[in-house]
Amino acid sequence: MSDSYSEAAAAGPEHGGSVSHVVPMKVLIAVWAALLVLTILTVAAIKVDLGSLNLWIAMAIATLKASLVVLYFMHMRYDRPFNAIVFVTALLFVMLFVSIAMLDSKAYEPELVPGYAPGMPK
């Protein structure tokens, strides 16, 4: 989080007065192709029975795809690092939320007594 002045000055006008990086066409096409290949891969991977690993493989491929989109299509690789920090922070908080809610429900679910609480089916 540096001073906004030096930031603006350091970026400087390039590409006809703009700050943003123009992503080369080759990169865009390569990313697109990679995303398609990964989509095929994720559909194929689910057909192989690997037990609980299947979920993690699917999530890993999805994360790889998402990273490609964020880094190249959304210019994060060429952008201010702070924008990346903002985005990653949001992801971390989602993980915090999901993991604690899961941890807690995993712990109390087995203790639920069917029909004990009103509205709870027997």
């Binding site: 915090l96 604690i100 941890l103 807690d104 712990a107 109390y108 203790e111």
Partner: peptide
């Protein structure tokens, strides 16, 4: 990191 302290008697697990 502290939201569960509103839920001590809600049926939340002892661990949480």
């Amino acid at each position: 990191l502290v939201w569960g302290h509103h839920m001590f008697v809600s049926g939340q697990s002892n661990l949480a």
